[in-house]
Design a binder for these strands. Structure first.
Lengths: 143, 143
DNA sequence: TCCGAAATGTGACATTTATCATATTATCCC
DNA sequence: GGGATAATATGATAAATGTCACATTTCGGA
């Protein structure tokens, strides 16, 4: 439903949201073990996110990746849009283009409104909001 | 959520359920266009399903693939078990092993009970049942 | 102003998944 | 029994995804 890359990206962004800010940037080598993602792969992912302004970065000494306040207001869907696009999230379980509730495929009812529910949440939930819930104990964050 | 192979397999099985029986077997070359699956790829998939007794087959003239009455009583999950196993259906959106409702990952609530609902339906819905619904007009079958 | 720290850019390599091609084996029918 | 037919077996190729390595650029600090 999400590619490995997207999962890694989300984990990394949430980690940065919790542990970094403009005055406390974090380097790849201090992140990768903590979220269990291969170092070089993580580097590539963070660079893509940075280029698309999902996260922020600074080069040189004292540099690293971090989330600005603006970054934190973005919805989660932006992360997966940058990493893999949205095709994997489309709802039809048999990948039939014309499939919808008016013209459902054979499996349509078996999956229910699962995908659209998930997609809607990705669109509506901001990083900020998710982190707040975690801080408030409303959500847990095993990474 | 399902691999392309599984989707092809499900389409093919449903097609066979509707159009074949012990006295009317069907050849790959008469199926693949109708369900829009590459011929050789479909052949390979049908062979795997046949070897695992999800579908039936006969060689030589008048041979082909078909679904026996016994085959039709199998739940849909058997198809995906044979083709790709069950890992892709596991519920955690971040692929975290320890993730469950007691110890939910950050995205757990965003996906809700979607996957478990889908999995349950795959386990409980037999090919037979699905075909009946289609025949009764309760479900539609664009392949 | 130079050294080293860190992201960035580029591309090679590995793995998985999807697709195609071809030779082999079993079965029916004459 | 021999020829045509259709599944079966094996493996080659292609494409997408995931992983690694290294050279380059930018920037801070002594």
């Amino acid at each position: 439903m999400l590619s490995t890359s997207s999962k890694y990206a989300i984990k990394a962004v949430l980690f940065l949201a919790l542990h970094s800010n403009e005055n406390h940037k974090m380097m790849v080598k201090d992140i990768f073990q903590r979220i269990n993602v291969p170092q070089q792969y993580l580097a590539k992912i963070l660079q893509e996110l940075s280029k698309k302004d999902i996260i922020s970065s600074a080069r040189g000494p004292k540099g690293g990746f971090y989330l600005s306040d603006t970054n934190k207001t973005l919805p989660l869907i932006n992360i997966v849009d940058v990493i893999e696009g949205r095709h994997r999230l489309q709802s039809c379980m048999l990948s039939i283009k014309e499939c919808d509730s008016q013209n459902p495929c054979a499996l349509h009812d078996l999956v229910g409104n699962a995908n659209s529910y998930f997609l809607k949440n990705l669109e509506e939930t901001t990083i900020e909001k998710l982190i707040e819930d975690i801080r408030d104990g409303k959500a847990i964050l095993p990474l």
